[in-house]
Structures are given as structure tokens and as C-alpha cells.
Design a protein around this nucleic acid. Structure first.
Length: 428
RNA sequence: GGAGAGAUGGCUGAGUGGUCGAAAGCGGCGGUCUUGAAAACCGUUGUCCCAAAAGGACCGGGGGUUCGAAUCCCUCUCUCUCCGCCA
């Protein structure tokens, strides 16, 4: 959620910022400004009536004691009560529309981002060289199927298209990757958190997925509306709600969390040919990093998270590039996003394997997540940041493709071997 | 699944219709005393809305009754106890 004060004081700047993000919210913002005025007028009117009510209410016991006739006073108060009710109803209507619109506004992009979409994304650094083969490399689907690492057919049998089954060394390779990520994060001082995989509506609202993207997640049916839950699309949704409606102390910041979860996404629409296999499934495994920081620390935290994602990719021996996303390619909740992309031979070019974002106070406002300053005791919103560190669904295919040998076997990256009982080669 | 109890300020806990935003204790902060500290004593100590004053809201959430609700009623959520069932 954006700061209403910012919108009020600088509506054109907000409009321009969102247009840079390729969302035109001019109408919404104008309406918000109108509602904001109405809202404050209504609050003022209602509160004056309530003040009157409170004043008279205090006098009544004394009047009664004095034995005065209270009939006229009560009649007057009943009238007052009616007007308060009327005003409250009006206020509630205004606030409902206001809140809905406020929640629908995306985050403002940082000012240094290029406006526009994907085409304006800007690679800011490269690491290593694309892998070269002295033979015709196979794609990961053929490799994984051939080696019995992934069973696509049976995945589809169990749950339909977009699901697969990891088997044997494939499952162990997957698990090895997750362990490598988790151990690295723990060594960096992050707290491992295992969260529920089914979440309540408020979690989606705080993270910024709802109300706009309610159709992108899997909902569990329940006869009770209040019990309605959805399968988490990323651990970020859970981790960002961990401190919802809390006031942290300054000493508690930064909070550095990681969580492993499967992620469930509807991914409606069809796949492109180069997204065959496990690149875009309905369920995939991911280790997510989330930080809560003081506002002044979030830029440094962002760099830290980007660095951590890069280090993991580096550790696996990949060539990669880090891309600063243009305003319009950042997701709705985020002020700033860097993607880390690796080269997967069968996929013609670079594919995102990690996305690191700074939401600044956008999610904190939605979830009412604050902290108290030591100096002066002021409460302020925290900043929240998140990044994949990493998702396996693109990493495992990449590991398999890049490390394949002419005979169809796969060399296990050094860092994973200890998690695979020392196995160095898969196949043959 | 059945039966019951409960949710009050940072914490413990009183308050069952009217100067209650809320007793008391603990904790926190400031001070007196002390070479310093502890103890003792004195004072102070919630959040939010509104640009601010005035004012208003907040005793788990929402709704209702009433001139007036922390207090009565309905409802939801959560916690606890007992019984049953179960990985």
C-alpha cells in the first residue's frame, strides 16, 4: 500500500511513477483523492456528533440524581444517535471504496529504474562464460527421462499436466540442491523457518498477491468463509506475514529468514515450447530468503540478497548475468527487482533462476508491520525484501544439461557431492 | 467430533451498565539517597485517527441492545481443560 500522504501531497509524482511501471492509475488516484477528502469530512462530522453525545451522557447521572425530568434529553439523544448512525454508514461506505482502491495500487518503482517493460531490462554484470560442448548436447527432458531422474508421465498420471515425479538419484539431486542452499544460508546467519503450506487470506493480502491475483493460486474449498485457505505460491507469502500486526524493537532488526517450501501456482495459459519439462510447473521446490529491515538499511540488505543468490549460482559452476529490471517488469508489490539469469543450452538464452526484490514499506503497510526506534520511540514501518535462494525447478535442468557428458552421464557439481553420499557421476 | 472455561495496557491481574483509558503488582524510564551499584523512597509510563489544537476511536474481530457498554445479547476467530477419535 502506498502512503496516502504521498498521494495527497504529490499526486502527479505517484501517477508518473506508476506509468513508468506501465500501469495507468490516474483515474484511481483521482478517485482516491476525492474519497480522502470525503473521508476526512465524514470523520470530522461524526466525531463532532460523538463529542456531543459523550458530553450529554456524562451529565445524565447527575440529572437523575437531582431528580430532573430526562424525557426531553433522551428524545434529543435518540435523534443524535440516528445521525451518528447515518454518518457512520456513510463513512463506512467511503472507507470501503477507499481501501479497495488503495489496495489495488501497485508499489512505486525506485527512481533509478528505467521505465517500461522487459525490453528495457538492463544486464548489470556477467559472471563466467557460457558453457561450450564438443558434442551435440541433449536437452534436460531427454536426459532426466533417460537417466530415470524425473518421471513426467507418471507425474501427469497422478495430477495432470504440469506435475512431475522426482525418482531415485533425481530426487536425491533435488534434495541435495535444497540442502546446499539451506546450509549456505544458515552459515550466513539466516534463521530457517518451516511454515504452513496453506495460508489464510490476510497473508496473501499482506504480500500483495491479493486482491488482484486471487485467481493465480489454488484455493482449498471450505464451507466456512473464514476458514478458506490457499496453497502458498511462494514462502515469501508466509514469511512476510510472520510479523504481521507486530511492532518489533529496533534491536530485533534486521530479521533474516529462509524457508523451504513447495510452491503451488496455477500458471494458467499455455507453455512455450522452450518451457518444456520442469520450467513452469504447478508445484516446485524453492528456498526463499526474506529480510525485515529498518528503512535506511534496506538498500544494503538488497545488495546482500542479490550477492547471496549470485554466490549460490556461482557455487554450482554456472555462467550467469544479473539483470536490473525495468520498472514495468518488477512485480506489482516491488519497488526494485534484480533477476539472476543463467544460460540453459536447450532454452535459447538466459532464464531467470532467482529474483530479488525490495518492497520497501509497501508490504509493511498492508500487513501493519512496524518497529519502534530506540531514539525518540517513534514507530515506523519496516522494509521487507525477498529473494529466491533458489528455486530448483530451473536449476536442476540446468545442472543436468550443463554437466552432461557425451555418453549421456552427468557430472555432479562439487558442492552437491557431500549431500549425495559422495556420488560424482550419475549414469553409466 | 462432544462438553465446558476464557481472551483486559510490555507482563500478571482487578473490574459485570454511568467521572473506567481502565485498580493493584511487576517491568521500563526519570529523580532522591550513594564514591559507585543494589535496596528504599518520589515521580512517570499504551496505541491509533485528524496538518494541529479541540476532539474522537481502541479492553480478541464484527454486529446488536441502551440516553450511555470492558461490563448485557448475537456471531466469528483464537487459547485452555475434560472426553472421544486418530497419524
Amino acid at each position: 500500500m502506498l502512503d496516502i500522504k504521498l498521494i495527497r501531497e504529490n499526486p502527479d509524482k505517484v501517477k508518473a511513477g506508476l506509468i513508468a511501471k506501465e500501469v495507468d492509475c490516474t483515474k484511481e488516484i483521482d478517485r482516491i483523492l476525492a474519497l480522502d477528502t470525503l473521508r476526512r469530512e465524514a470523520i470530522f462530522a461524526t466525531e463532532n456528533l460523538k463529542a456531543e453525545q459523550n458530553k450529554v451522557t456524562k451529565q445524565i447521572p447527575e440529572l437523575k440524581k437531582a431528580g430532573a425530568d430526562t424525557t426531553a434529553v433522551f428524545a434529543e439523544m435518540n435523534k443524535l444517535k440516528e445521525s451518528i448512525k447515518e454518518n457512520d454508514t456513510k463513512l463506512r461506505e467511503i472507507e470501503e471504496e477507499y481501501k479497495t482502491l488503495m489496495l489495488s495500487l501497485p508499489n512505486l518503482p525506485d527512481e533509478d529504474l528505467k521505465p517500461g517493460g522487459k525490453e528495457n531490462n538492463e544486464p548489470i554484470r556477467y559472471y563466467g562464460e557460457p558453457h561450450k560442448f564438443d558434442f551435440e548436447p541433449k536437452n534436460h527432458v531427454d536426459l532426466c527421462t533417460g537417466l530415470g531422474l524425473i518421471d513426467y508421465a507418471r507425474g501427469a498420471k497422478l495430477s495432470g499436466s504440469g506435475f512431475w515425479v522426482y525418482r531415485g538419484l533425481g530426487a536425491r539431486l533435488e534434495w541435495a540442491l535444497l540442502n546446499y542452499f539451506i546450509d549456505t544460508h544458515i552459515a550466513d546467519g539466516y534463521e530457517l523457518v518451516l511454515v504452513p503450506h496453506m495460508l489464510g487470506y490476510e497473508a496473501g493480502l499482506t504480500a500483495g498477491q491479493f486482491p488482484k491475483f486471487e485467481e493465480d493460486v489454488y484455493w482449498l474449498q471450505s464451507s466456512e468463509d473464514s476458514q478458506r485457505r490457499f496453497m502458498l505460491p511462494t514462502a515469501e507469502t508466509a514469511l512476510v506475514s510472520l510479523h504481521r500486526d507486530e511492532i518489533l524493537t529496533e534491536a530485533e532488526l534486521p530479521r533474516k529468514y529462509i524457508s523451504y517450501t513447495p510452491c503451488f501456482r496455477r500458471e494458467a495459459g499455455s507453455y512455450r515450447a522452450d518451457e518444456r519439462g520442469m520450467v513452469r510447473g504447478h508445484q516446485f521446490n524453492k528456498v526463499e530468503m526474506v529480510q525485515y529491515t529498518k528503512p535506511e538499511d534496506s538498500d544494503a540488505a538488497f545488495e546482500e540478497l542479490v550477492g547471496k543468490a549470485e554466490a549460490l549460482v556461482k557455487g554450482l559452476g554456472f555462467h550467469f548475468r544479473t539483470v536490473k529490471l525495468a520498472a514495468g517488469d518488477c512485480s506489482a508489490s516491488m519497488a526494485r527487482t534484480y533477476d539472476i539469469e543463467i544460460h540453459i543450452p536447450s532454452m535459447n538464452g538466459y532464464k531467470e533462476v532467482s529474483s530479488v526484490s525490495n518492497a520497501r514499506d509497501y508490504q509493511a503497510r498492508r500487513g501493519n508491520i512496524r518497529f519502534k526506534r530506540n531514539e525518540g520511540g517513534k514507530t515506523e514501518y519496516v522494509h521487507t525484501l525477498n529473494g529466491s535462494g533458489l528455486a530448483t525447478s530451473r536449476i536442476l535442468p540446468a545442472v543436468v544439461e550443463q554437466n552432461q557428458r557425451k555418453d549421456g552421464s552427468i557430472v555432479v557439481p562439487e558442492v552437491l557431492r557431500k549431500y549425495l553420499g559422495g556420488i560424482e557421476i550419475i549414469g553409466k
